[in-house]
Simulated assay, not measured.
Amino acid sequence: MQLKHLRTLLAPQDGPSKVTALAWAPNNSKLAVCTVDRIVLLFDEHGEKRDKFSTKPANPDLGKKCYQVTGLVFSPDSTKIVVGQSDNIIFVYKIGEQWGDKKVICNKIILQSAVTTLIWPVQQPTFIFGLADGKVKLGNVKGSKSQTIYSSESYVVSLTSSPSGQGILCGHADGTIVRYTFDNDSELSKGPVCKHSCSPYALSWSLTSIVAAGCDRRVMVYNHSGKPIQQFDYSKEEDEKEFMCSATSPSGQTVVLGSFNRLSCYRKLMVW
């Protein structure tokens, strides 16, 4: 097995283009990308930008630039987007089924710490988010409560789920990647999987591997036991910046990594 990649620059007209969060819709029809200007861009399955909407601060009195969007995830029916923010809040936006449908806030969860990352595993009734205080929690789009499922003393920098939705990986500031499974009968062990070379801000779990990257501009591919099996090294490329986020396609075949002004797409190749 090897991965190949297709790299795409974000258009200059999209404004400041540092990518802070991205998510793929479960129905495979939309890719949501949020940039440093706190605007969510919506792309279709061909990579064409079709729509966008602006996010809002938890406290409007502090101004529109007092926060960053740190996590995005679609609801299972692909009609809502959960937005995690650095100002201790999560908003749920109803975006509709058609391009151009009105975007409205339908729920919010107020927290005691900044949201650092956000996912919604398939076949799970709730979404999962990580906080700056090291906690990983469950959240519900129909309520304003959350429940802690996993705690660490290290800042949570990333979360990703397995293609089946029965497990998650938690990336921490100290480089540790930890696995938590919902299925007690899973053959995969719980606990630390490996120690990445830097904080794994970009972390994805594909069908056959774990992909991790961060500020050292090296994309590492691990097997499910945590053994390194492949590397893409961009550390000597002057125009490449640190990797900050990633998303896995619903099929588990493709991984997209976001950096300063670039999307890197890695696709699986089967070698017989």
Rank of each mutant, 00 (worst) to 15 (best):
N140T: 08
T254G: 00
Y234C: 05
A11G: 11
K195F: 03
Q13P: 07
A11R: 14
I95L: 12
Y155G: 01
L159C: 10
I149N: 09
S209I: 00
S75N: 10
S186I: 10
Y180S: 07
F43E: 03
D216W: 01
V271Y: 08
T20D: 09
T79P: 03
S54V: 06
I110F: 11
G191R: 07
S113D: 07
V19S: 13
V92W: 03
Q231P: 08
G252Q: 11
L3G: 09
I105H: 04
T208M: 02
W99H: 06
T79K: 14
T20Q: 06
S209H: 14
H172D: 09
V73E: 14
I39F: 05
S158H: 09
Y222Q: 11
T176V: 10
G63C: 04
V193W: 05
K4C: 14
G252E: 12
V157G: 02
V122A: 12
L207M: 09
T8C: 05
T208F: 04
V219G: 05
V156Y: 03
G139P: 12
F74A: 06
P16M: 03
C198Y: 02
Q166I: 07
W120F: 13
K142Q: 14
V115D: 01
K236T: 08
W205M: 03
K227S: 13
D216H: 07
K102I: 12
L42P: 04
E48V: 07
H46R: 08
L9T: 08
L131Q: 05
S264Q: 09
L159V: 09
K52T: 11
P16T: 03
C106S: 12
S189H: 09
P125W: 04
S146T: 15
L138S: 08
R262L: 14
H172F: 07
Q231I: 13
C170D: 01
K195D: 05
P200I: 00
P57M: 00
V211I: 15
D44M: 03
D185H: 14
G175N: 08
Q68M: 02
G63E: 11
M244A: 11
G171K: 08
V104T: 15
K65V: 00
D77V: 02
D216M: 02
G171E: 09
S29A: 14
N88E: 15
L188D: 13
P200D: 03
G63F: 09
D61M: 10
A114R: 12
M244Q: 13
R7K: 12
V92I: 14
I229L: 07
P76G: 06
S209E: 11
Y234D: 15
P228E: 12
V115W: 01
S189T: 06
V92D: 06
K268V: 13
V157A: 05
S206G: 14
G63W: 10
G47N: 02
I168H: 08
C245D: 10
P250L: 05
C198L: 02
N28P: 00
Q230V: 00
Y201C: 04
